[in-house]
Every structure is written in C-alpha cells, then in structure tokens.
C-alpha cells in the first residue's frame, strides 16, 4: 500500500504535545527560571545569575554524588544485564512452567519502591532481620547502618532483586520470538551452545536489550526511594546519590536556587548518557543489517 503524505496529520500529535508541555516542559522551564534566582518563599525572587551553577560545579559534594551514581549504575548494569540474559535463557519455553516463571519474575516489579526499601531495611537489620542475623551468626560482622561497604552491597543486591526481572522479561520476549527454523538450522550445522547464543539468540535480543539497558541505566541513575528508605544516604554520605542529595538540598535546606541548578546539570547528564547509549546501540544494530 502506498503511503499518503499529509502534513495535517501533525495535528494528531497535538494532544500528546500539550500533555508533555504541561507535565514536562513547563516544570522544566520553571526549574530553569529558579536556577538563576534566589528565593526565601512568599513568591519573592532575587536575581543570582550563574552563581548557583558555579557553586554546584565547584562543589566536591556534587562530584562525589555524581561519581557514586555512575559507579552504582555501572555495577548494577554489569550484574543485571548478564544475569537477566542467563535467567531468560534458562526459563522454560513451553508448558506449565512458563506462566509460573513469568508470574514469579513479575512479582518484584509489582512491589512499590518504598515497600522494597522497607523490606530490605528490615531484612538486613542485625537485630530482627533474617539476612543480618544470618550473616552475623556465620561470623560476618555485617551492619549496613555502620559500614559503607555493607550499605553499598545491600543497596546493590536490593536493586538486583527488584529490577533483574525486567531484564529477564524483556530478554525472554526476545527469545520466544525466534522462529524454530533458526535452531533447526543450527542443529543441522552442528553449532555449539555458545554459537547458538552468539549468532542467533544475542542478535535477536539486541533490540530488547537496548531497551533494557536504557531503562535500567536511566532508572538507576535517578534512583531515590529504595536507598533513601534503607540507608537514608548513609553511613555518612556513602550512599548519597544525586537524587538524594538534590532532595536534601531542595527540601531539607530549602535551597531552591542551587537545587534547581543541580537539577538542570543532572538532567543534562542523563540526556547526554542516554543519547550516547541509544546512538551506540542503534548504530551497531544498523551496521549488522
């Protein structure tokens, strides 16, 4: 069927454009306006120019939080993506096991973020938590409220528990869409298990993996609720990620100007990294075709 070009069709995107304008563009514009001013409330503002940006960009507190966030996102991507692929490869493709596995995989995704934080906050406690009590009875002096390494391990394991399912479900969707003819051809050629994965399954999963990596990166880079509930950003500032620092600044200290400047820098970093991820992965996909 021949495509019909009609520029009036652009009016069809008007509703979503209005929705995005009210939910994203107008708030973003307001944040930009706040970032160059100072306020003490009562709708009174004082011009500050670029002072807040200079303050944020020269503050070790911001750079420390940014590094923590980048390391966190790198670690969870390095764990969740291979683990998600591994689980998806081993899930049943036929029979009663399929719905059972799918429901089990979907369960962590259905739990609200603050509830996940509370579960792990209690689970890891030394006095009443199963994990904390068990590790200490093994002779490991685990205490996520006092030891930064333990706090990091708890937050990472919690995120892996919560979000690996998303990668699994996306990879599984990619895997079940591969026609049997591919596997039959591989069997005839005597392909090894690794070759089947490398040349059939991985290329077919590439698109869903792109979505998984992008979603997990953006989500982990913006993580707030779970680490805030479990560690509150501590011990010290060891698990204070950018979003936690931002909320402390904006709501705890009511420094709306610096917080707005930090929000814009934060937003630009996410935009840049997401664009790089998206471009690299879509280009490698296009080169393969």
């Amino acid at each position: 069927m021949e495509k019909t070009w009609n520029n009036k069709a652009w009016f069809l995107v008007l509703p979503v454009l209005l929705l995005v304008a009210f939910s994203a563009v107008i708030p973003l514009m307001t944040v930009v306006n706040y970032s160059v001013q100072d306020t003490f409330g009562n709708n009174q503002f004082f011009w500050a120019g670029t002072d807040w940006f200079v303050e944020i960009l020269t503050s070790p507190r911001f750079w420390d939080a940014l590094w923590r966030n980048l390391i966190f996102s790198g670690v969870i991507l390095a764990i969740e993506v291979p683990l998600g692929i591994l689980i998806a490869l081993n899930m049943p493709k036929h029979g009663i096991g399929v719905p059972v596995c799918l429901v089990l995989m979907a369960l962590p995704l259905l739990i609200p973020w603050n509830v996940v934080g509370t579960i792990w906050q209690v689970f890891g406690r030394v006095d009443i938590g199963l994990l904390g009590y068990f590790l200490n009875s093994l002779g490991i002096s685990y205490n996520y409220t006092q030891n930064p390494a333990h706090a990091w391990a708890t937050v990472i394991v919690m995120d892996v528990w919560h979000w690996t399912s998303l990668v699994v479900l996306l990879c599984y969707a990619g895997l079940v869409s591969i026609p049997d003819a591919y596997y039959q051809a591989a069997r005839i050629d005597g392909a090894s298990r690794w070759s089947v994965f490398r040349y059939i399954q991985l290329p077919k999963m590439k698109r869903v993996l792109l979505i998984a990596v992008l979603l997990r990166f953006m989500d982990s880079f913006m993580i707030y609720t779970e680490p805030f509930v479990v560690t509150g950003g501590g011990p010290g500032n060891s698990t204070t990620f950018l979003s936690i620092d931002l909320v402390k600044m904006a709501i705890g200290q009511f420094d709306l100007g610096p917080a707005a400047a930090m929000s814009i820098i934060y937003f630009l970093i996410i935009l840049l990294l997401s664009w790089v991820f998206y471009t690299v992965m879509t280009q490698s996909d296009a080169e393969q075709k």
Binding site: N7, I26, M29, T30, V32, N33, Y34, V36, Q37, T39, N43, F45, W47
Partner: peptide
Amino acid sequence: FSWMAWTLPTAIFFITIFALIAALGVWEY
C-alpha cells in the same frame, strides 16, 4: 504565571530555543 518566576534572560533563552525549533519546522516544510 508569577509562580514560574520568569526573568527577561530566561525568557530570551526559551524564545531562542523555540524559534530554532520553529525554524527547523519551516526548513522541513
């Protein structure tokens, strides 16, 4: 729109961005 805390420099900034996008639309037309 006082809650948006508009200033002349930020208004010029956004007008420039929107003008660039509009110019791109005209170019595309």
